[in-house]
């Protein structure tokens, strides 16, 4: 099954499409044109019409994702650099992140279960508000599927970037710390990038919230989510 030429081709294709879609996104700044969304769609369409199977893509996938684990560990660095803000209002921040994380995953799981969706889908939907590198790992632990988890994470991040700030204003949530944290808990990396346009405080809080929400959710996942899924 291992075909070096095909593996090389799929890697080059992925890298080139990523570079192109990143350029498009930087020019347009449109959340719907995020590089991940655009390049994944393009690759799936190309594979679909050229008859390349996912099985042929797997060796390339293993090479390309090799650095994902180390990169995820690196997420500790921005969290460390923002530790002074964290210390300043520790209790509100922690309470906001914990309650927000529990509320969102509970709502998602309960509603998905009521819709009669497959258990793999319901388990994957529980990870939709955590940042993608950790969402795929948590999905594996609780019986979800990493690819579906990424799809939900991206959907949530995209929608959150588009309507999040407007919805917060509609609910009269004007405090910059609250706005940043809410976007980080809800829409992780994409939300953080969006709310950064409002100011440094909002951006930094969102980054902190994204990392802490992911750590918190992965701690409760094997107990709380597994119990919810029953």
């Amino acid at each position: 099954m291992n075909n070096p030429a095909m593996t090389t081709f799929t890697i080059i294709l992925t890298v080139v499409l990523y570079i192109i879609s990143r350029k498009i996104w930087l020019k347009t700044q449109n959340a719907l044109l995020a590089p991940l969304l655009l390049s994944t769609t393009a690759i799936i369409l190309i594979f679909h019409y050229s008859g390349i199977t996912f099985e042929q893509y797997k060796p390339g996938k293993a090479i390309m994702t090799f650095l994902l684990g180390p990169a995820t560990v690196g997420l500790a660095l921005p969290l460390y650099l923002n530790r002074s803000i964290l210390r300043k209002s520790f209790v509100p921040i922690l309470l906001g992140i914990i309650c927000g994380s529990i509320a969102t995953l509970t709502t998602a799981v309960v509603l998905a279960k009521m819709s009669g969706l497959d258990s793999v889908i319901v388990a994957s939907i529980a990870t939709k508000s955590i940042t993608a590198p950790i969402a795929i790992e948590v999905a594996r632990i609780i019986g979800g599927d990493p690819a579906i988890a990424v799809a939900f994470v991206v959907f949530t991040g995209t929608l959150g970037s588009m309507i999040g700030a407007g919805f917060l204003s509609l609910c009269r949530i004007t405090n910059p710390v609250a706005r940043g944290l809410a976007m980080g808990v809800t829409a992780h990396g994409q939300g953080t990038a969006t709310i950064l346009h409002e100011g440094q405080t909002q951006g930094a809080m969102a980054g902190v919230a994204m990392a802490l929400a992911a750590v918190f959710t992965s701690f409760i996942a094997p107990f709380y989510i597994t119990w919810l899924l029953k």
């Binding site: 992925t14 890298v15 499409l17 990523y18 995020a34 590089p35 991940l36 390049s39 994944t40 690759i43 799936i44 594979f47 996912f54 893509y57 390339g60 996938k61 390309m64 994702t65 650095l67 994902l68 990169a71 993608a132 590198p133 795929i136 990493p146 690819a147 990424v150 799809a151 991206v154 990396g189």
Partner: peptide
């Protein structure tokens, strides 16, 4: 986000 392309495919 590059790393999630192969996963999402």
């Amino acid at each position: 986000s590059f790393f999630f392309i192969p996963i999402a495919v």
